[in-house]
Design a binder for these strands. Structure first.
Lengths: 325, 325
DNA sequence: GTGAAAGCGCTAACAT
DNA sequence: ATGTTAGCGCTTTCAC
C-alpha cells in the first residue's frame, strides 16, 4: 500500500481511503492510485485490515454435513446472500457431535468472525459460554427454541412428528414403525410421532434406530428389520429422512411388496426425487432456501440495526401427500 | 495475551510461546499460564497471528456449487483432511462462471490463504495471473491438464466420453443422443462421446443441451424433446449427470416406455441412488472421496516439502454397467 | 527458559 | 482532500 502510494505520489493512508471510501478522495488522485494499483499488481491484505478495524467480514457457518442436501442447500442460500453483502464464509462440518462443534467454534472464534451460523439449538455449555462472551451475532438454524443464544430460524421438530402422526391417523393407518438416523433432531421427531400415534391408535410404535446418518442402503436394511419383527398390513413407516424412505421403497419393490398397500412410507425433507420415486413419496417439506435466506438476513439486520426484530423465526413445514402413504 | 501474562507473572511473549511451542516453556510456567488462560477466558486472535507470521492456516476452496453432491462430497473429504492438519476452509461457490471465479479468487487472496483449491482447469487470464503472482500452492481438481497452475487431481473428461461411446457401441447400440447441462466439462464429455460414437456407428448424434445445472425435472423435459425429434428403437441417451438420467427414467416410466429396450440410458457420477432406480442406472463412477483426499494431501505435501511429487494426478473413472444400458 | 524490541499492513483519530 | 501518528495482537529476532 505504501508502494502504491509512492507510485501515485500520495501517502499510504490516501490509498487506504481510495479503496474503502473513494468518494473521500479527489477524482484525479483516485485515478492515479488506480493506475498504480494496476501497475504494481497490488492485492489488499484483508488480514491486516481486519486486525486494525476489528471487523473481519468473515462469517462462520457450522453444520453437521455438507454432503447432505438438506444442509448444503441452506448453506448455498445463506452464503449467497452473505456474499452479496460483502461477507465471506468459513465453514466446518460438525457431524452431529457437540464436542466437535465446540472445538470448531473455538477455532472459528479465533479468526474473529463477525457472526456465526450454527445448526441446531443444542450446544455444549462451553460452546454457549464462548459465544455469549464474544457477543457476536449468532443465528441458530434448522430448529427453534424460546431461548436462543441470539436468534434462530427453523421449525418445530416435535411439531413435524405430530403432524405426521395426525396425517397417518387421518389417512386410516392404525400401525406404525419409526426409522430414525443418529441425529438428535430426528429423534425428537420420532418421539413426538410415537407419542401422538400411540395415543391416537392405542397401539405400540416400534422403532428401528441407527446411530449414523441416513442412507439408501440403511433404508433397505431397515425394511428387512421391520419385516423380521413382523408388521400388520397397512403399517406406516415414519422415516427421519427421504434417504431412508427411498431405500425402503427400493427394498419393498425388490421383495414384491406393494406400497402403500402392504406398507406405507412417510419421508422427511422432500428432496427433489421424492416426486419421482415409484410410488411417489409422501414427505415433510421444509423450505431450505428461505431458511438460509432468513438466517442471512437476520445477521445482516443485526449488523445494521444492532438487533433482530424477531429473535425466533418459525419457517414451518408442510406435509406433502403423494402416493406412498 | 498481555493480560494472561500479567496474571501468570510472565511476559506476553512467554504466553505466545506457551501456546505455539509449549516445550520451550518450563512446566511450572506453562501451568500458571494455562490457569491464567482459563481464568481470563482468553481466546487467541488468529488474525493478529496470521499478520505477524504471514501464515494464515486458512485454505480457500472454490467450487461451482455445494448443493451438487459431486462437489460437496469432494469438499467434505478435502476439508476433513485439511482440518486434521490444522487448516480451516474458506469456501465460495462460483457457479460455472469464470468471472465470478475470478472475483472470488481475488477476494480470497486478500485473506492470504496458505493454499487454494480450484474446481476445473479453465480460469480467466486475470485469475491465473493473480494465482501465479502470489505463488501459493494451488490444486485444481475434477479435471486434468498437462499445464496446471501448480498441481491437479482429476480425470479426463474426454476419456470418460470416449469410454461411454465405446461401451455403448460394444453393447450393441447404433444410435445415440446426448443430454448435457450448462457446464464446460460436461460439454467436453459430450463432444468426445459424439465424435467417437458417430465415427464408430456412422450415424449422427443429436444433442439436447441446457444452459443450467442438471436436475430431475430437466431430465424429464429432455426425454420429451428427444421423443419429439423421433428416436430409433435402441437409442442410447448419454447424460451429463445422473440427475438427468433419473428424470429420463421417471419420464420413460410415465410414458410406458421400456428401458433399455425402447431407450437406453447412461448417467454420469454414479450417485448413491443409481443402483436403486428402476431399472438400475448404468453410470460413470468417480471416486470423489479419494479425489478430495488426494487434493488435500497434495497441498499438505506442498507445505511440507515445498513441492508435489506428481503435479498431475489422474484418478480415473469407472463405467459401472447396470440395467439401464 | 525468558524478555525486550521491532514490525506485520492495515484503519482510526486527529490534524491540517 | 490529504497527511501524521498511534496502535490492532500477535510472531520473530536477538539478548540475556
Amino acid at each position: 500500500m505504501t508502494d502504491v502510494g509512492r507510485l501515485a505520489g500520495v501517502s499510504q493512508v490516501t490509498v487506504s481511503r481510495a479503496l474503502s471510501s473513494p468518494q473521500k478522495v479527489s477524482p484525479q488522485t483516485l485515478q492515479r492510485i488506480e493506475d498504480a494499483i494496476r501497475q504494481t499488481g497490488y492485492v489488499p491484505n484483508a488480514v491486516a485490515g481486519a486486525l486494525a478495524s476489528n471487523k473481519s467480514n468473515l462469517v462462520a457457518a457450522l453444520m453437521p454435513s455438507v454432503t447432505n442436501i438438506v444442509y448444503s442447500s441452506m448453506l448455498h442460500a445463506f452464503s449467497d446472500i452473505m456474499w452479496g453483502h460483502g461477507y465471506q464464509i468459513m465453514f466446518s462440518e460438525t457431524g452431529f457431535d457437540l464436542d466437535r462443534e465446540e472445538k470448531a467454534i473455538a477455532t472459528h472464534l479465533s479468526r474473529r468472525p463477525d457472526a456465526m451460523l450454527l445448526t441446531g439449538i443444542h450446544h455444549s455449555p462451553g460452546a454457549r459460554r464462548m459465544l455469549v462472551n464474544t457477543g457476536i451475532p449468532v443465528v441458530e438454524v434448522w430448529d427453534i427454541t424460546d431461548t436462543p443464544i441470539d436468534c434462530c430460524v427453523g421449525f418445530s421438530h416435535a411439531g413435524a412428528g405430530i403432524a405426521a402422526a395426525d396425517f397417518a391417523i387421518g389417512a386410516g393407518y392404525r400401525h406404525a414403525v419409526t426409522i430414525t438416523a443418529g441425529d438428535e433432531r430426528a429423534r425428537r421427531r420420532r418421539d413426538a410421532f410415537t407419542t401422538r400415534f400411540a395415543k391416537l391408535s392405542q397401539t405400540e410404535v416400534p422403532a428401528v434406530d441407527f446411530d449414523t446418518s441416513a442412507s439408501l442402503g440403511l433404508g433397505r436394511q431397515a425394511l428387512a428389520r421391520v419385516l423380521e419383527q413382523g408388521v400388520s398390513p397397512g403399517t406406516v413407516l415414519f422415516c427421519s429422512s427421504d434417504q431412508f424412505a427411498q431405500g425402503l421403497l427400493a427394498e419393498a419393490a425388490a421383495r414384491g411388496l406393494s406400497v402403500p398397500r402392504d406398507i406405507a412410507v412417510i419421508g422427511f425433507g422432500d428432496q427433489e426425487f421424492a416426486a419421482y420415486t415409484e410410488p411417489s413419496l409422501t414427505s415433510i417439506r421444509i423450505d431450505r432456501q428461505i431458511l438460509g435466506q432468513l438466517a442471512a438476513n437476520a445477521l445482516v439486520d443485526r449488523f445494521a440495526i444492532g438487533t433482530t426484530l424477531n429473535a425466533v423465526h418459525d419457517v414451518g413445514f408442510e406435509l406433502v401427500r403423494r402416493a406412498s402413504a
